[in-house]
Computed example of a mutant assay.
Amino acid sequence: MIFETERLLIRKLVLDDLQPFHELESNPLVLKYATGEPKDFDENRNELIELISKYKQPKNDFWIYAIERKIDRCFIGTVALVKDNIDDEIGYRLLEKYWKLGYGSEVCKGLISYCKKIGMKKIIGYVVDENRASAKILVNNNFEIVKKFISDDIKLPETKYELEL
């Protein structure tokens, strides 16, 4: 386990996560405001294998973990921690059936606590402006707007948020 919240466990991904990981990464609505296109099963299997292999890399700076509900050990999404010691970035994705249940807010609070615990000084999040729910979560957790721009990759208005820890 990496960290836990009241209802969630954050842990390393495993190959048994393939089916729900594929459901997450092949849903166009989940990826609507994210970089990348929905992938087929084989592409998602290869990506999952690659993400798992990164756990063993000594200088890895790109971590993706599983979000699991404590009550039933059900995979509900992923969290990301991209560390470069300048703009250490957090992010998360939830399976569509778990939207609007408070899991995004809960995992964000857990990520903030975890980042403080491992000694990070500042974290950032990027949110496409149309994604009002994610923007609200960051604002409610005291992130401040530091930059507005049009994203290079998905060509939509986006905001960079920052939180001093």
Rank of each mutant, 00 (worst) to 15 (best):
I2G: 03
E4R: 00
E6D: 14
L8Y: 02
I10W: 00
R11S: 03
V14T: 15
V14W: 06
L15H: 11
D16Y: 08
D17Y: 11
P20K: 10
F21E: 04
H22V: 08
S26E: 04
S26R: 08
P28Q: 07
P28I: 04
K32E: 15
A34Q: 13
A34C: 13
T35Q: 12
G36N: 11
K39G: 08
D42I: 14
N44W: 06
R45N: 05
E50Q: 14
L51P: 02
L51T: 07
I52M: 04
I52K: 05
S53L: 01
K54I: 02
K56T: 07
Q57N: 14
Q57W: 07
P58V: 05
K59S: 10
I64A: 09
A66I: 09
I67Y: 04
R69W: 01
R69Y: 04
I71G: 03
D72M: 07
F75D: 08
I76Y: 08
I76W: 09
I76T: 07
V82R: 15
V82A: 13
V82L: 14
I86E: 12
D87W: 14
D88V: 07
E89F: 09
E89C: 11
Y92R: 05
R93S: 13
R93K: 15
K97T: 07
Y98W: 04
Y98M: 04
W99D: 06
K100Y: 11
G102S: 04
E106K: 02
V107D: 06
L111E: 01
S113T: 06
Y114N: 00
C115G: 01
K117C: 00
I118P: 00
G119C: 03
G119E: 03
G119L: 02
M120E: 10
I123S: 01
I124A: 09
G125D: 08
V127A: 14
V128N: 09
V128F: 04
E130I: 05
E130C: 04
E130V: 03
N131C: 10
A135V: 07
I137W: 04
L138T: 01
F143T: 04
I145R: 12
F149W: 05
F149A: 12
F149T: 13
I150E: 13
S151W: 07
D152Y: 10
D152W: 07
D153H: 12
D153Y: 12
I154K: 07
L156R: 12
E158R: 11
E158V: 12
L163Q: 06
E164N: 13
L165Q: 09
